[in-house]
Each structure stands twice: as structure tokens, then as C-alpha cells.
Amino acid sequence: MRTALVIGAGLMGTSAALALAGRGVTVHLRDHDPTRSRTAAALGAGTDEAPEGPVDLAIVAVPPAHVATTLATAMREGVARGYLDVASVKGGPRRELAALGADLSAYIGTHPMAGKERSGPLAGSADLFEGRPWVLTPTPETATEVLNLALELVALCRAVPVVMDADAHDRAVALVSHTPQLISSMVAARLEEADETAVRLCGQGIRDVTRIAASDPAMWVEILSANPGPVADVLTGIAADLAETVESLRALQSAEDGARRGGTAGIEDVLRRGNAGRVRVPGKHGTAPAAYEVVAVLIGDRPGELARIFADAGRAGVNVEDVRIEHATGQQAGLVQLMVEPSAAPVLAAALRERGWSIRQ
């Protein structure tokens, strides 16, 4: 691939353009808002000048509702040898494109499983897709050349290709992406009118659950509008679990021993099923999640403290598998939770104590 045209200079389009431009591909940028393509060009994502002739690959990075018409227009213009989109929904846009009479042999639907809470070209990053799954949804009609161009794009962005059926993809993202967004927003919405004393008690749990609730509502309305059925199906199951959980909690308020036992069993059931589901979430390097030991260290909010603690862990010969920071409310300090192999936890704790760190149980 020597040339590419990115249509849509938002987060996804700009990030793909930055990755391609950084690896020697000549990238042209187009957006319905010229200021966005100019901004992306100024960031080093390519040029906002139109290509002189057909490019190797056109990458359509627009909201799902506009994917088919944007692709059809680009195909009529003959701007590229191959065409793909990076929208988060795949089945609907492909059917719309077919209904518009487009040549589906020149097209492949794709979806990089990456993103941020922020949007727009200024949020773009050349490493956004690095190490992340990038779904490809070829059909028997997809030309080999187009599939190869898509695979080359994924490689240049240092992502991991995953081949799926388009409708299976839409059901999958309804479960692992779209529904979590709604649940996160629903939980965060409870905080809007909460008493200030309750909000001040927010810890890492509520921060984890509500992190993605900061996402752009307009963007998510477009995504959810393109995949409403599968998301509603997942939420129906969650609603049933929620109703049973509410009933179990009410039973725990009962004066009858039998009712309380039934309530306890109901709560335990949903928690155990949650444990079983959580175990299936891939861990480090895509493998099954490991049972790490946590070494919690009190750390001051000063420049260089994180670098120092990681350097001390390195000197102890311990590999930190994961890390989390829990900030202390109203204090210039927090807890750094270092996740390590269980056998390494005592070694790390002892080494850090030796170097003056305060270890918390």
C-alpha cells in the first residue's frame, strides 16, 4: 500500500491516518467539515489535498448511519482500488450498500476494537490500534486484493486481525461494547442527583464502572441506532436478572427465615454467575486471566514517584503484570496496586519496604 484516502477525520480516521503516514504511506484526508481534515493534516496525519488519481485504499471513518452513502459516493467517484469502513456496526451498512447497487467485491467491512472517551481529530493517536483486535467481515464476494489491502492496513496499524461474520460481529459488540456503555451511563446517572456526602465516598469500584459514561452521547446515539435489536436482546436478559435480584434483596428484608434463605441464594447465584463470566474475559496477551497477587503501596502525589516505584520493582527482579491507582479523597496521596505473580508478591513487598515504601495490606 502506497496511498490511502481517509474519509472522516475524527478519532478513528485520524488515528488510522497517523499510523499509515508514520509508516510511509501517502495519506489524503477528507471530511464534511474542512477544519477537521486541516487539523488532522496539521497533526501529521497526511494532506487535506485531494489525490490526483485513484489511491490504493479508501478508509471510510464516518458514523454508521452515513457509511453506506459515503461508500457508494466514493465508489462512484472511483477514488480507490479497494474500500473499507471502520464503523462499529457491520451488517446494516453492508445491506444498505448492496441496496444502493454498489460493487461489493471492492468492499470489506471492518471494525477496530479500540477507542477513547474523547472524539475528534485532536484525540487521534498513531498507536490507538496497537495490539487491539481489528475485525474483518469478508464475504464470498470480497475480492482477494481488497482483503489483502485490509490485512495490510491492520498490520501497519499493529492491530490483530479477527475474521467474523458481519451479523455475528454485531451481536458480539452488543454484548461486549454497546450494552456496557448503557449500563455504565445508567449507573453514573444515579450520581447526578445524589447527596454530596455520598459522592465523596466514591472509590475505585464506581470509577471503574462509570469510566466510559464520559463518552459523547451524540456518538453513542448513532452507534446504538445502528444496532438496536442485538443490544435490546442483551438488555432483556439483564433486565430479567435485575428483576430477580431486586426480588431477592426484598426477600432479605423479610422476617421469615425461609424467605431470607431464598433471597441469599438468589444474590449468591447472580454473583457466582458473574464470577464465571468474568473468568472468560481474556487477560494478558489474550490468554485466560491469571490470579495475580496485589501489593498495595502508599504513594505521594509528586513528580517521579511512579517512575521510582517501577524502577524499584525492576531492581527486585519482579515483573509488574498490571497496575491500578486508587486516589485518596481530599489528600495528596493514593494507593498504587501492583499486580504480580503470587510467588513474586512477598519478594516485591520486602524489596519495597527496604527502599522505604509503605506497604498496605
Rank of each mutant, 00 (worst) to 15 (best):
A17C: 06
F310S: 14
D233N: 13
L100S: 03
L43W: 08
L242Y: 10
A19D: 04
E152Q: 14
L18M: 09
Q332N: 12
G258C: 00
E193Y: 05
S119T: 15
V162C: 05
P303L: 12
A345M: 07
L352R: 05
E321Y: 00
V295E: 05
P228C: 14
R207K: 13
L156C: 01
E141H: 08
T179F: 01
V60K: 03
C157Y: 04
R272C: 01
R171A: 10
I223G: 02
A80W: 05
G277C: 03
R94T: 02
K284F: 01
A311P: 00
Q253W: 04
S248R: 05
V176A: 11
G53Q: 12
P121M: 15
R273T: 06
A16H: 11
P140E: 15
E77H: 10
D56P: 01
A232V: 10
D241M: 08
V281A: 12
R36C: 07
G203F: 01
A194N: 13
R355L: 04
V318S: 05
R81W: 04
P34N: 11
S225Q: 15
R272I: 06
G82Y: 02
W134D: 04
A80N: 05
R81H: 12
L306V: 13
D31F: 02
A214S: 15
S125V: 01
L122C: 03
T144I: 08
T137M: 05
P161F: 07
G314K: 11
A214G: 10
A172W: 07
R211Q: 14
V246H: 12
L104R: 10
A214V: 10
I223P: 01
Q331N: 10
P161H: 08
A243V: 07
A218N: 09
H169G: 02
P228L: 13
V270C: 00
R261S: 11
G82S: 11
L298A: 13
G262Y: 01
P161A: 13
Y292S: 09
R278C: 02
T39K: 06
L136M: 14
E196D: 15
T264D: 09
L84M: 12
V295A: 06
M339E: 15
I206T: 08
G101E: 13
D233Y: 06
A17F: 02
G262W: 05
V209C: 05
A194K: 09
V234P: 01
A198V: 15
A155L: 02
V187W: 07
R171V: 02
G262V: 04
E192D: 15
P64S: 10
E305S: 11
G92I: 02
E117I: 13
H111Q: 03
P180A: 14
R250M: 08
R36E: 04
A45D: 11
E341G: 00
R94A: 05
A349N: 09
A174I: 04
R190C: 10
S343T: 15
P93H: 09
G317A: 11
T144A: 15
V281R: 11
A251E: 14
A172Q: 14
L128E: 10
